[in-house]
């Protein structure tokens, strides 16, 4: 029990303490604040775009094929069309209230409304996961702002919460594969079957499809497919290592590589996922602060005669 408590304490230390906003350097803290504001803008832009895109789509919907989330308890068919425009407005207003610091509750209202919009839009039978990472980010902001008044605590909670759920999500995906198929999941023929499926989709959409170099290699040798699936599975499995700041950039790097791999093999593009990983997964604040300090200390920037000589 004590060991468990110590593990939880260490994990919390890694998630919530080891952050640039806690730095002793004022320059680093200011950089961390700017980075956090950019992150808020990123989340705001994507969440508002999703809310309205999903809302407009519901004008085409007429029946509920699949009841997701809250759709199990409320008749979402009555929210198709104009009501979904109201939901999109609530998302937009909630985000506007919190990003301008007029209310701490705006982000929380926005994530609840966006959940509703998601279940309304995707009651048509398709369950995409392309927006889940963004959903975690808005949820992190929602809970972080609603439960903290202190701005530093808000930032620390948001980052820690976000990394906990993002890391957990990737590892969950790896576990799901073991549960759904077992260790034979990595059989390269499975990837060959998926490539065929996506190829038909792509050709049907655009009129033609031909394999790229990676796809050709996998179609010609199932071993290449097995290796690709093995690397992809291991990358997902180590997702929880994102919980640790020192390992995070490396895990993020291979995760971004995995997303590009999925794009090259199965034509599935992860725009929001990859953008969010790039924006949040690397120590931009430390890098930029170090760069700034180096340029200040460099003789060429402080002593013009160095250049002349």
């Amino acid at each position: 029990m004590n060991r468990m408590k110590q593990w939880v304490k260490d994990l919390e230390q890694s998630l919530f303490e080891d952050q640039p906003i806690c730095s002793e350097s004022k320059a680093v803290r200011s950089g961390a604040w700017v980075h956090f504001r950019l992150f808020e803008l990123f989340v705001a832009a994507w969440a508002i775009a999703y809310a309205w895109t999903w809302g407009f789509y519901t004008f085409k919907s007429s029946v509920v094929v699949l009841e997701l989330g809250l759709a199990n308890y409320i008749p979402v068919a009555s929210l198709f069309g104009l009501p979904s425009m109201i939901i999109a407005s609530v998302v937009t207003l909630g985000i506007a209230l919190s990003i301008t610091r007029l209310s701490r509750w705006g982000y929380l209202i926005a994530i609840l409304a966006l959940h509703l919009q998601y279940v309304v839009r995707f009651s048509q039978g398709e369950i995409p996961h392309s927006s889940n990472l963004l959903g975690f980010a808005l949820l992190a902001l929602g809970v972080g702002f609603a439960t903290h008044k202190d701005p530093v605590a808000q930032v620390r909670f948001t980052w820690g919460f976000l990394w906990f759920f993002v890391g957990l999500g990737y590892t969950s995906a790896a576990v799901s594969k073991l549960v759904g198929t077992g260790i034979t999941w990595i059989d390269g023929q499975h990837l060959v079957l998926w490539i065929h499926e996506k190829a038909i989709d792509y050709a049907s959409m655009t009129g033609a499809w031909s394999p790229n170099v990676l796809q050709s290699a996998i179609l010609n040798s199932a071993w290449v497919g097995t290796l690709s699936l093995f690397i992809g599975w291991v990358t997902e499995a180590i997702g929880v290592l994102m919980w640790f700041r020192r390992l995070r950039p490396w895990v993020i790097l291979v995760t971004i590589g995995m997303h590009f791999g999925i794009t090259w093999t199965m034509n599935i593009v992860f725009v929001a996922f990859v953008m969010q990983l790039i924006l949040t997964g690397f120590p931009w604040v430390e890098w930029l602060t170090t760069l700034q300090q180096k340029s200040r200390m460099s003789p060429s920037s402080s002593d013009g005669s160095t250049l002349k000589s």
Binding site: N132, G169, I200, A203
Partner: peptide
Amino acid sequence: EFWPFSIFPMFSKAGQPWSRAM
């Protein structure tokens, strides 16, 4: 599935037959 929470089951069942239109 309870967005944004999920067990992320995409591609978890490998080798399943599929049907499309073209």
